[in-house]
Each structure stands twice: as structure tokens, then as C-alpha cells.
Amino acid sequence: MVKIKRAFVGAVLITATLLTGCQKSQTRKENTFAFRKMVQDETTMEQAEALGVVSDCNKASPWGRACRLSDSTLAGVAVVPGVVDFGEDGKFHSLSIEIDPNDYATIRDALTSAYGQPCRKESRHRKLSEEEAVESEDTAWCFQGGILDLRQMTPGDSSRGVLDYFPHKPVPVHATPATYSSETL
């Protein structure tokens, strides 16, 4: 009887360990942010340039270096060429792409097809002026390392929307200027 209990407990522990390990590895792989052959914290700037995903990598950014996306389309619609930041370690860190608010639904649907259901959807009442306000949608997809945020309109500007990926990691301390005052904010 004792041998049967030990065998049963052992089988349960092995099964639980295997299931937990599989779930963790699947979650990690599925929940790592990737965009146009670039994987967050893995793809280097040099690799992204060699793949033809980015170009014009001479601009400094608070995280390291910034490049332009080579392709100025997203989900089949024209966009302003986005900016990709590579961290101090030279690896893909964040991105920002300006979109036309009229293309929001097309881009949202393509992102949902690529990344699955969003983790957040919000409708916002944006005040453009004292006389004018509009309804705007925000949708976000959550990843292990950050959030992909699609905003139909940026605050105070109904003429443009934005797609941003921001990592959970904080901005390095040296990137923040040491002297801010109420006049320089």
C-alpha cells in the first residue's frame, strides 16, 4: 500500500512538473513581443539592418540608438515611417508608428489577427478644444516584456493616432536630464 501511494504521489508530481514546465515555456515563447522579424531584447540593431527592417540608425535615443522602419506601411495601409529604439545593449527595445485615425480599425484587426485578443480596450472622450470633443478608441496587447498600445487619436490631436510598444523596463537613469525646472518641462 505504501509503495502504491509513493508511486501515485511520484506520478502526480512528475505530471504537475511537466505540465507547469510546458505552460511556462509556451507562455514565454507565445508572449514575447516580435515585430517584423525583430524580437524584443533579442534582435540587435545590426541584425535588423541586415534584414532590411530598419535604416537610418544614426539618431540617439534615451535608450541607446534609434532607427527608422524601412517599410512605411502597416496592415496594408500607409503610415509615417516608425521609429525603433535599440537599448544600450544594442537590442530591440521599443517602437512608435504614427497612423491615420481613419485606419485604426484596419490596423486593430490586423494586430488582433497577429497577436490575439487585446488585454485592454477603452473608449475615450477626447477634448480637442473648448467647443469640440470626439470619441476615440485605445486598444492594448500585453506581452511578457511590455505593452503594445494602439491609440486611434493622440490626446489633443484628432489628426493622428499612434502605435507604440513600450517595455516594462524603466528608462535608464542617465537618459533623464538632471536639471528640470518649471520653465524647462
Rank of each mutant, 00 (worst) to 15 (best):
D138W: 13
L74Y: 09
L163E: 05
D149F: 13
S96A: 15
T106Y: 04
S181M: 01
Q47Y: 00
A178M: 05
D89N: 15
S182E: 07
C57T: 08
F166I: 00
T179S: 02
V134P: 04
G76Y: 05
C67M: 09
L69D: 03
H93R: 13
T44A: 08
S136N: 07
P170I: 00
D56C: 06
S182R: 07
T20W: 04
C119W: 12
A140T: 04
S182Q: 02
R65S: 15
R68M: 07
D71A: 07
A48Q: 08
V79I: 08
T112N: 12
R120A: 14
A66M: 10
A105G: 00
A178W: 01
Q117M: 10
E46L: 09
F86T: 07
E137T: 07
L185P: 03
T27F: 13
G21H: 07
A114G: 02
S159Y: 03
C142I: 08
A178Y: 00
T176S: 06
P155E: 13
S113Q: 14
F35D: 03
L111A: 06
L69E: 04
R6V: 11
S25Y: 12
C57R: 02
V173W: 02
V171C: 01
Y104F: 15
H125A: 11
P177I: 03
G87I: 08
K169R: 08
K127I: 14
S72T: 02
E183G: 04
L69G: 00
P155F: 15
S123Q: 14
E137A: 11
Y165T: 02
E98D: 10
I107W: 05
T179C: 00
L13D: 05
S136H: 06
V53W: 09
L128G: 07
T176R: 06
H168T: 11
S129P: 07
D100I: 07
E122T: 09
P177A: 04
A114P: 06
I14H: 01
W141H: 06
E183A: 13
E130I: 08
P118I: 13
D100Q: 09
K127Y: 10
R160M: 07
D109S: 14
L13A: 15
A50T: 11
S70M: 09
Q26G: 05
H174D: 01
D109H: 05
S94I: 02
Y104S: 01
D157Q: 06
L18V: 15
K127T: 11
S129V: 09
Y180P: 00
T17E: 02
F86N: 07
K5C: 10
G82E: 04
E46G: 10
K24L: 15
A11L: 13
N31W: 01
E131F: 08
P101H: 04
S94G: 06
I14M: 12
D157G: 08
R36S: 14
S123P: 00
P118E: 09
A110T: 02
V162R: 11
I147E: 10
S182M: 07
Y180A: 01
I99L: 11
G21N: 03
Q47W: 03
S123A: 11
R68G: 01
F92C: 01
G116C: 05
